[in-house]
Design a protein around this nucleic acid. Structure first.
Lengths: 205, 205, 205, 205
DNA sequence: GATGAATGAGCGTTCATTCAT
DNA sequence: CATGAATGAACGCTCATTCAT
């Protein structure tokens, strides 16, 4: 019974891995279900046993990856003290996860997020769970005084995530920069300054 | 002769407007050429006289809109002095153009930019032309001392554009915030602080 | 009035000449009406003023060419005495007309004759008129005793026309022989022997 | 395994038979793939599994029929001695095959052979293989002295095939003669005389 | 359960024909 | 009369999905 379940889970994972590769390579529309089946070493029928339809297969990918990423992030954050140190680590993890999972980055940024129904998917909720960690760091930073008290958390999240993902898209499509992680320090500096408590009174209106 | 040309250009525009609406509504794949034709009040044949194929029709949209947006931006920037004032205006224009052209925002962010071949399209070049203006403002700001000398222009552009567009995507998909422009001031503050000359020595490494 | 008629006839001829070239080059199906119009230097509308539809245009070609060929043949036959001399001349004319009107040969053999409705067209009747001359020569030859009395005229015509046209098809498609007319003598020999009075008793059954 | 293969071959044959009928009835252009599918009792998808496209389906017909016809001919020729007897049998087989496969005759003479690319198809090579048998008979006849030593084999083949096929075309389009085979004797007589050794010196030049 | 052969709805595109100018 | 821009019916082909084995 357990074995059957394991087999089933294993098979799901194999299919999802194959789908990740094919979707990343060809895009959702041009990806062929039979090619995914071939890559996974299963029949098309098996895919339709496990998944509702092709779109369900796409959506199942983040439902597998994001929890894994969240777990990995949680492990990495362990033992780190101080909001800024956590912030830097979060930034590093974000970039690192994209850099070491290029196919996933492709799927997330080119297939999943631009989907009009994205905000109604489970993936969206999972991502919010992931970025909740970012919000927590912001809050901790505010208490520490390293982030501005009045900072709008969501706005900060948009700028942080949007900025990183915009860079990642250029990395995916143009291959620049060679290593995503090379931007870690500069991004850390910019974002901490952006979100920091520094007075904005210096600039004339 | 002139009339013929005008008619032709007018018809192109009518088709492009219809395509903009339908593509925004249904997405490229689910949009039907005959529906675009119907909406434009022309036959399918007319569309294929003017455009190579369905994809060409999609690509023709930014090739029309971006120059228009660039022109509009240029007009708006006229008479503004000072890098920060220009910066604020650029930010406002960016948000304003999305807010007042929701369909265009949808197409650009959900169809055009996530296309794997985006960086090889004319649209990409046009957008770079548009954001060149942003880079110029950054440079002017550096000379004025309001932006940090060592700031990486491209990185700043990524954060600026990525941040704004991430917000816009949520606005498109969730309807939040109600008015994109409501973020203008807060974004101005964050970005100017982010790109400003303020010492980063204050933070321990 | 006469001038108008002449203009009209001239225009018809120009269109037919253009159609002959394009149909020969591309085949009926792949030929485009607008290309014929362009080649003829007229508008598509003009073609449809003059011809019912695309198929009518095809059928109008033999209705122009065959009478011309018949006239040319008649002139060539003038002053020739003796069935065998006429036979040889007819053979030569047939080959010569194909060789010097390659486009026409292409149309006749690849487009007109293989048309299922060919036998119901005017072209068919015109061709029968043309080959009537061949039958007359056969009859004359029978009276002279150079052709076998009991020869079935239609059968002889099939063998003669079929043989020549089969050779012509290979000439069209393969470019062999280089000159159709090079076969004149050998064909003359074979056909005259085939249709000649020679006893067939020589062969055991 | 064998069964699968048999099924596959059987299905191919069913489709080819349906295609033969529909192509013969309507011609290649007016034949509809879905009609062929319906006639064959399969879906359009199945046709496109087995054949590249509609044209491939057309070309696959001779690639099936000609080898069958060649085999049938070979069987019929067994045990026949003497070039003239073989010649008569070959003639009979040619007419008989057309008469008993009217659809095939239609396809071959109206669709396949008039195709400008015919000489570049596999069908052309197969037909050359078939008529090779005719050439062999001619050669044997020359050795026996019943055919003229100097006869050009290809020219003889053109006249023989061209003549027969011209008759067959009239039979297809006009229904005359009622039975193709009724011409066997007369054609035999004409062709043997045509290709025979008889002096041609009898005719004045 | 697993398979993969079979399905058939669905759509982009073409081009002969028309008709307003 | 001549034009050629506009039409829209028509069809080959694809591929996600199903289901008999």
């Amino acid at each position: 019974m357990n074995k059957i379940n394991n087999n089933k889970i294993a098979k799901r994972d194999i299919i999802l891995t194959a789908a990740l590769e094919i979707f990343a390579q060809k895009g959702f529309q041009k990806a062929r279900v039979n090619e995914i089946a071939r890559r996974a070493g299963v029949s098309e029928g098996t895919i339709y046993k496990e998944f509702e339809d092709k779109e369900d297969l796409l959506h199942a990918i983040p439902e597998k990856i994001i929890p894994e990423a969240t777990l990995e992030l949680t492990l990495h954050m362990q033992g780190i003290k101080g909001a800024l140190n956590k912030f830097r680590k979060f930034l590093w993890c974000y970039l690192h996860f994209f850099e070491s999972n290029r196919d996933w980055a492709t799927i997330l940024l080119l297939q999943i997020k631009p989907n009009p129904k994205f905000t109604q998917t489970k993936a969206y909720q999972l991502i919010r769970g992931f970025t909740r960690i970012f919000i927590d760091i912001l809050e901790e930073g505010k208490r520490e005084g390293v982030f501005k008290e009045s900072l709008d958390n969501n706005l900060a999240r948009h700028i942080f995530i949007g900025g990183i993902e915009h860079i990642t898209m250029r990395w995916l499509l143009l291959g620049k920069p060679e290593h995503l992680l090379s931007y870690t320090d500069e991004l850390f500096e910019i974002f901490t300054k952006a979100f920091g408590p520094g007075g904005d009174g210096g600039y004339p209106d």
